[in-house]
């Protein structure tokens, strides 16, 4: 019943982008964590999670992201999130996830912000 998530990675000068297409639920845990661990092993320091606006994210999906926030703090990585609908931006603020990851409308905006911060 779940739309299997497709996870792909793009590398830019400023950051590594993990594109998420599909439901971010408990079924997505392995794919998301694998992508994150892989780019972390390659030394990624700025990581952008790029969501597709109309996809379904539930509390289990948010828990996966909190797990990544935990890892990212230990590795001193910066997390950014893009592509979220207004609804899920609200949800992420509600649970406090935005204390640990900056939200931007698009990947381009996130990369520009990193440029401006000199990260």
């Amino acid at each position: 019943m779940s739309d299997e998530i497709q996870v792909s990675v793009r590398t830019f000068d400023q950051a590594t982008v993990i594109d998420l297409m599909g439901d971010v639920t408990t079924f997505a845990e392995e794919a998301i964590n694998q992508a994150y661990q892989s780019i972390s092993s390659d030394g990624a320091s700025n990581i952008v999670f790029n969501f597709r606006e109309n996809d379904y994210i539930n509390s289990a999906g948010i828990a996966i992201l909190i797990g990544i926030v935990t890892e990212a703090r230990k590795r001193d990585q910066k997390l950014l999130m893009t592509g979220l609908s207004a609804h899920f931006q609200k949800i992420f603020r509600m649970v406090g996830l935005t204390q640990y990851a900056d939200l931007h409308p698009s990947v381009d905006d996130a990369l520009s912000a990193l440029n401006n911060n000199g990260s």
Binding site: G67, V69, T70, R73, V95, G96
Partner: peptide
């Protein structure tokens, strides 16, 4: 969330 991130609270 802070507790979860610090590993002090269960997810």
């Amino acid at each position: 969330i802070a507790g979860m991130v610090m590993g002090e609270e269960r997810m």
